[in-house]
Amino acid sequence: MAMSPFAGDDDDGLMNEINMTPLVDVMLVLLIVFMVTIPVIHHAVKIDLPHASSQKEDAKPAQINVSVQEDGTVLWDGTQVDDAALRAKIATAAQTTPQPELHLNADRKVAYEKVAQVMSAAQSGGLTKIGFVTDPAHQ
């Protein structure tokens, strides 16, 4: 008497070959899918694209150096200006193309209120590119 129900069976009844019918079915389905999709892939629409020159533009925007000194005076490219002249110069600079970059250099001891006023004047005048210049030697 055997312990396992399959212990008495011989291996004579097992099939030793791979059933090729499902493999052929899958291959035929893939062939049909590819036959349908390949004409769609090769379908092209002719478009007239514009031609562009490959020359690089080197038009860098001008830089405007605005300095705020310790006593609160404002220098526009080294020339002292008052608030009205500063706003007028910012308005004319904002109209140029390409728009110049405003480099703001403030003394460490100047009140932040004065720096904020210059930044506000630049923003209300239309300048969008404002950078801060720092001096790492005076940290």
Rank of each mutant, 00 (worst) to 15 (best):
L49N: 12
G72R: 04
N65R: 05
I18K: 13
M20W: 15
V81T: 09
S120V: 03
G13P: 03
L28M: 10
N19Y: 05
R108F: 02
V81G: 10
Q80P: 04
F132N: 15
I38K: 09
P50A: 11
P136D: 05
H138S: 12
L14M: 07
S54D: 13
D107A: 15
L30H: 06
I47P: 00
Q139P: 02
D58A: 03
G126D: 12
D71Y: 10
V26D: 10
L49T: 09
K129D: 13
D77E: 08
D10M: 12
W76R: 02
T96S: 11
I32Q: 06
K46Y: 07
V115N: 00
I47H: 08
L127M: 14
V74I: 15
W76H: 02
V66N: 01
Q55C: 04
I38C: 05
V133S: 05
K129G: 01
I130K: 05
I32G: 05
T73L: 06
T79F: 03
E113L: 05
I130D: 05
S4I: 07
S67Q: 14
D9W: 13
E113D: 14
Q55D: 15
H42S: 12
D25M: 14
V36Y: 09
A44F: 13
P61V: 07
D48I: 12
N19C: 08
Q55N: 10
L23W: 15
